[in-house]
Computed example of a mutant assay.
Amino acid sequence: MEQAFLRVAGEEAVPDWLRGGVVAIGNFDGIHRGHQAVLERALEEARQRGVPALVLTFEPHPRKVFRPDAPLFVLTPPHVKARLIEALGFAGVIERPFTREFSGLSAEDFVIAILEQQLGISHAVTGFDFHFGKNRQGGPAFLMAAGERHGFGVTLVDAFRDEGTEIISSSRIRELLAEGEAAEAAGLLGYRYTVEAEVVGGAKLGRTLGFPTANMRLSSEAGLKEGIYAVRFRCADGTLHDGVASFGRRPTVDDHGAPLLETFVFDFTGDLYGEIASVSFFGYLRGEVKFEGLDALVVQMKRDEAEARALLSGVRPLSELDRAIAF
């Protein structure tokens, strides 16, 4: 019987059926096309060997541990990252807690404690620049030598470049999203940028204007440009709806500084409060504008709806992953 996708967080034990597999190792924030080159290679190795394919990643992002005072726009929080990894076809993801104590492990101790004892891997796949262990002492050459000592194979994947020969990175994607370039970011991600959160109550102003919204609070570090977007909204039951969303900070809402995403879901009636929903961003329509009155606001909202419907009517999946997430 086929096993369900498994997300192993914290110090949970790894079940026997996941041991002996091929593991892709890295932080993989964004699961962008560069990461996917590594992940697809791991899936291919696992298929050839007839063993499970796993992803070993680290939570929180190491930069949050080493530079806690520097805000970091995390593209794929753990639950979103796990969803993308599952959609790619992996058997499971191991979310290793990243702490200062863990970062102090020597490279050899990391290999023994995590790769050998916890996972019992048969093969590791990483990017060409992956480093691990105290002071980043473990690099590609060390990992390959360790594999020979401990009985597992190693595959290194070269940097992935876009059509303009630039290396695809999470930093580039963060910069594009901060500029409202949702379509360009999608080109590097290989799928539409997607957020996931609980639908919460709002001021209900939209409802009185004929534009009821599903409101979601995102991380205070979310670096997405504030403004109006054409989006796809996925309900907890998996149903998908087109919509138009406003993203920004509303000082009149007691949201503790967290940005609020307000989505007017097209052709939908029902109660979404308390559901975990996702929103995929297809295009940036305009910046936020302060209107003189509600009548002017309603006129603009109708224009936004028409523009979003037109944009979304012609979209096509960028990849199988995009199809799984936003179609």
Rank of each mutant, 00 (worst) to 15 (best):
R136C: 08
R136K: 13
Q137V: 01
Q137E: 15
Q137M: 10
Q137A: 15
Q137T: 10
Q137F: 07
Q137L: 06
G138L: 08
G138I: 08
G138V: 07
G139L: 05
G139N: 14
P140K: 09
P140D: 07
P140V: 12
A141G: 09
A141K: 13
A141R: 15
A141P: 03
A141W: 07
F142Q: 08
F142V: 10
F142C: 06
F142A: 09
L143D: 06
L143V: 01
L143E: 06
M144S: 13
M144F: 02
A145P: 10
A145Y: 05
A146G: 08
A146I: 04
A146N: 02
G147L: 08
G147P: 03
G147F: 02
E148R: 15
E148M: 10
E148W: 00
E148I: 01
R149D: 11
R149H: 11
H150W: 14
H150K: 09
H150Q: 11
H150C: 10
G151I: 01
G151C: 09
G151S: 11
G151E: 11
F152Q: 04
F152K: 04
F152R: 01
F152I: 06
F152H: 00
F152W: 09
G153S: 14
G153N: 07
G153W: 04
G153R: 11
G153V: 03
V154C: 14
V154W: 01
V154P: 03
T155F: 02
T155S: 15
T155D: 14
T155K: 04
T155A: 12
T155M: 10
L156C: 14
L156P: 05
L156E: 12
V157D: 00
D158R: 13
D158L: 11
A159D: 11
A159K: 14
F160G: 01
F160Y: 15
F160M: 11
F160C: 12
F160I: 03
F160S: 10
R161N: 04
R161W: 07
R161F: 09
D162W: 03
E163Q: 14
E163T: 14
E163C: 11
E163P: 00
G164W: 04
G164S: 13
G164C: 10
T165K: 12
T165N: 15
T165H: 13
T165S: 15
E166D: 15
E166C: 12
E166N: 15
I167P: 03
I167R: 13
I167M: 08
I167Y: 05
I168L: 05
I168S: 02
I168G: 01
S169G: 12
S169D: 02
S169K: 09
S169W: 00
S170V: 10
S170E: 01
S170Y: 07
S170D: 00
S171T: 15
S171E: 11
R172T: 12
I173H: 06
I173D: 05
R174D: 02
E175L: 10
L176E: 05
L176S: 04
L177R: 06
L177M: 12
L177W: 09
A178G: 14
A178T: 06
A178N: 03
E179R: 14
G180F: 09
G180C: 12
G180D: 10
G180N: 09
